[in-house]
Design a protein around this nucleic acid. Structure first.
Lengths: 188, 188
DNA sequence: ATATTCATGTAACAAGTTACATGATTAG
DNA sequence: CTAATCATGTAACTTGTTACATGAATAT
């Protein structure tokens, strides 16, 4: 029941269409609450039906009309309530870990290959996160930024994403050292 | 489509009833592929219907009959196939991160409270993982254990769980320093 | 006495995934 | 000329969650 709260949180940054939200999601909230475009449309419809969002329809001649959603007071109240509720435990689901757990004498090289592929997408993600971080800081030091207080929450969440990906990379290398000893992580 | 592979992986450690499997899950695979008892029963039924598992019914007088499942060759083949398939990206879903992302001037203390609660369950989890690690190593050094090769996969997956929880704790303290400065992490 | 363990299951529902459809517009 | 972008949506399906039910056995 918490995609709704992720959506409301994303709308804190300002009103948005479903289409735009799903992109904003990818660049911020998706890190700890992934959602497809379809899920977001569905959730926006629901939230609107339950009157937690206001909508303005922007007519467009050559394209489908836009629906621009924004938080209303009830929406903000819902978020405030969510923050007071019990926090559910985090869940991680990772195919790669299932593969590694199933390691045996026959599948080592295939698992190593899977890890190398994952390793490069993790590197890309890390670069992306580092850019987002630099953009957020915009020249300030982290201490300055956090003292100012603006956007501290999203920034801190981003930092968790950063350390998650860094630990992933570390762990990928650790596993590669076991399943493909000899090959260094520089080998692609 | 990968709960099935998590279940098959868990059955690599030996035949099991649904009831037992769901506990074995909690102590190993749940870390990176959580599943409720009901999901596991459902999946075992499916896997059995698709003939990837063998079953032996153990009659019991005073309790419902046990169904003991074990991998057959097709089941092992399915796992081998899974390892060759493309690895889907990991997903993390965490209410606490949604809360932190929604940080504002009004909700800081509530968020701090949520983090402190999560912090103590993370500490418990860490202790559990450390016990599992010690039990796996059983006196050997990690290098010795990994060279022996037995159970290396599950061990490596466990290590990812360990570092995940350690990073969580680190990050919780980092966030607390921002939202509840003055209070130290020793304050409960 | 009471709670927990053993061991299964059904049912309803909520959430997430995948595929498809429309159709003009702009960028390469 | 082609691919990607804008912007919406439907539908079918698979997964995951929650609640409930049974009923003896054992542990506190």
């Amino acid at each position: 029941m918490a995609l709704r709260h992720a959506v409301l949180t994303a709308l804190l940054a300002g009103e948005s269409t479903g289409y735009d939200l799903s992109k904003r999601f990818d660049a911020s909230v998706a890190n700890f609450w992934p959602a497809s475009q379809q899920q977001i449309y569905r959730e926006l419809d629901r939230l609107h039906r339950e009157e937690l969002l206001e909508v303005t329809v922007v007519e467009q001649e050559k394209r489908p009309n836009k629906r621009v959603f924004r938080l209303n007071e009830r929406g903000r109240g819902e978020l405030a309530g969510f923050i007071r509720e019990e926090t559910k435990p985090a869940t991680v689901r990772d195919d790669l870990l299932v593969k590694v757990a199933a390691l045996n004498d026959d599948n080592g090289t295939e698992i190593a290959a899977a890890i190398r592929r994952r390793r490069s997408s993790a590197e890309e993600k890390l670069v992306l996160y580092e850019h987002l971080q630099a953009a957020a800081l915009d020249g300030s030091t982290e201490t300055e930024f956090l003292e100012r207080g603006h956007g501290a929450g999203l920034y801190l969440a981003l930092k968790r994403g950063l350390s998650f990906e860094r630990e992933n990379l570390r762990w990928y290398d650790e596993v590669l050292a076991v399943v493909a000893p000899g090959a260094t992580s520089a080998d692609q």
